[in-house]
């Protein structure tokens, strides 16, 4: 009976805890992301690898934002089940969405803190972090890195609207 509990009951309990805590944390994170995205909406961020012609910059620098987010146990288990039959790993999608958007926000915050006006040549990089299991399998989490070139405009009016 104890063996049965340890083998099936405990993981199930852990799964429930992971689901409720994980969902709560994720909702909170999305709330914070949306709020900040609203605040920075007017800050120009573009992916051109050269500066747009009508921008005239007085100075520029590299800015970056990176974030590391771990999977919760629930996401991992469901993804494991999904891996048996294949298909969209739906529980990972919000995780990566959060990571991308959080990395972008941090990059923008990095630029704004030093008074930059815009960022161009924005790139996103992702990497799988350490393994979550001793046998080299499982993912502990993802890292998302956003970087680009931040510029200060020559004059307040240089940015043509």
């Amino acid at each position: 009976m104890l063996e049965l509990f340890l083998n099936f009951g405990l993981p199930f309990l852990l799964l429930l805890v992971a689901y409720f805590v994980g969902t709560m944390l994720e909702k909170g994170h999305f709330r914070s992301i949306r709020k900040r995205e609203g605040e920075y909406a007017k800050f120009p961020v573009v992916t051109f690898d050269t500066m747009p012609d009508d921008w005239s910059a007085s100075s520029g620098t590299l800015v970056s934002g990176s974030v590391v987010i771990s999977l919760d146990y629930f996401k991992r288990v469901i993804a494991g089940l999904r891996a048996i039959v294949g298909g969209r790993i739906k529980t990972y999608e919000p995780l990566l969405d959060r990571a991308r958007r959080e990395a972008m926000l941090r990059m923008i915050e990095d630029a704004r803190r030093d008074g930059y006006d815009a960022i161009f040549n924005v790139r996103l990089e992702t990497s799988r972090l350490a393994n979550s299991r001793g046998d080299g399998k499982g993912t502990a989490g993802v890292e998302m890195l956003a970087f680009g070139t931040a510029v200060k405009f020559a004059s307040r009016f240089a940015r043509t609207q």
Binding site: G38, F43, P52, K75, K90, D97, R101, T160
Partner: peptide, 20 residues
């Protein structure tokens, strides 16, 4: 170039299937 501010659209990159 006119920069048009826009927030990321929800529901494109994330499936709306409930995790449960």
């Amino acid at each position: 170039m006119k920069f048009i501010p826009r927030q990321p659209r929800e529901g494109i990159n994330v499936s709306d299937t409930h995790p449960l």
